[in-house]
Design a protein around this nucleic acid. Structure first.
Lengths: 220, 220
DNA sequence: AGCCGACCATACACACTGTCTGGTCGGAGT
DNA sequence: ACTCCGACCAGACAGTGTGTATGGTCGGCT
């Protein structure tokens, strides 16, 4: 009648403060369990009960480590995007041929999305209905936008070409176009299911917007 | 103890078959009540109880006319977009100067979104988590994409410029860019809150993608 | 030995959803 | 005039989810 089911002794640090998380085993198990479930069904159809069942944890433990489902997703997203951030590195530092750097960046994005399709799909489908996730995703997009703004501002040719336009708006539109197309690809919406089509279309949008017709942006 | 609260005698046709709906008063009241609530808070925070309270209807009646909240939203969306369809008309029929037609189309889109911000915001934020809404929205986007594909295919210059690319993918990317930017504007995400910035950025993306640098796309 | 920190089971209050029962009313048909 | 039907209502229900709270069991450290 009472509870008897010891599992193994652990001692989490109980650190929920976001910063590079200190991997308490149970906490980690909850994270990966959620990640796995996400690979099978939509985020909003997953309940806390499902997660703790999959992780072999108790309800109380779950709410000890996370204030709710969204927080779990938020952390998964942060980790996924964290990796992606450095993948965009060649584009960030303007050392290489812009077109090459651009293509690498776009391909890195595609790879990131493929690897983390479940998690990223989940946040894209839910940041509209949760304040926490909303802020996270908007901020994430802003980070990417910042990168592009910097890149644009560093290139007088591009800047001249964009003349009267709001540079930030142009950069943001490219960021969001990426978000959309990567998402649609991950969600199996044609015609973006084809990886090459996706990359080419995105590449085309970026080059035409920033560099115009001429395929050789010269300098640096 | 029993229920006494006659309100007025009506006799709906009980036609739920989708086709141009036959406006039964209660049904209509539910629709507008939902629309009004949507102007105040997010779709997923609105319960059926809220809707029927606002419409002065009973729970039973609600479920008689609609299978659920989503169906109400779906109908509101269909109506909103239906109006917008014809607003894109100058762009559809390639009679006018493409640049002018394009700008009108983009501005019509902006107007449509301003007028129906609540409803359109709601569907964009929720089509990811409901099969019904998902299908509706994807289909809607496809309709717009079809229009652009036709327009591209009718213009040899544009077609040549797009050379190796998947035309449908390019058209779809422009459609989705619009969806995103209009949504962000409606959701007060800078820098798109400024209507002119929004329109200019969108215009820039379309013209650069389809017509390249030269601001005079010549014929027809 | 004893305490603490990491866990567990269970139960609760609350909020929603969708369905069902049984009822009231006005008007149209006979 | 009576009855039937269609449009509505009130309210209850089972089911499912969330977040919180209560109380208990372990292992290890002091």
């Amino acid at each position: 009648m009472v509870c008897v089911m010891p599992q193994s002794g652990r001692r989490p640090d109980a650190r929920r403060t976001n910063s590079t998380a200190p991997a308490t085993e149970l906490r980690e198990r909850l994270l990966t369990a959620t990640r796995d479930l996400l690979a099978q069904r939509r985020f909003d159809s997953i309940s806390v009960a499902d997660i703790i069942a999959a992780a072999g944890a108790s309800r109380a433990s779950f709410y000890f480590y996370f204030p709710g489902k969204q927080a779990v997703l938020a952390e998964l997203v942060r980790r996924a995007v964290g990796q992606g951030q450095q993948a965009a590195e060649p584009w960030t530092t303007g050392r290489q041929d812009p077109l090459y750097a651009l293509r690498s960046g776009i391909e890195a994005g595609a790879a990131l999305w493929m690897d983390n399709a479940a998690v990223l799909t989940a946040i894209v489908e839910n940041w509209g209905s949760d304040e926490q996730l909303r802020e996270l995703w908007l901020q994430q997009m802003e980070t990417f936008t910042d990168l592009t703004v910097a890149r644009i501002q560093a290139d007088p040719d591009v800047l001249r070409r964009l003349d009267g336009l709001d540079v930030r708006a142009v950069a943001a539109s490219l960021t969001w176009l990426g978000e959309r197309l990567y998402y649609l690809a991950a969600a199996n919406v044609p015609p973006f299911t084809d990886r090459d089509v996706l990359v080419d279309t995105l590449m085309h949008a970026w080059t035409r917007t920033l560099y115009g017709d001429s395929p050789s942006p010269s300098h640096t």
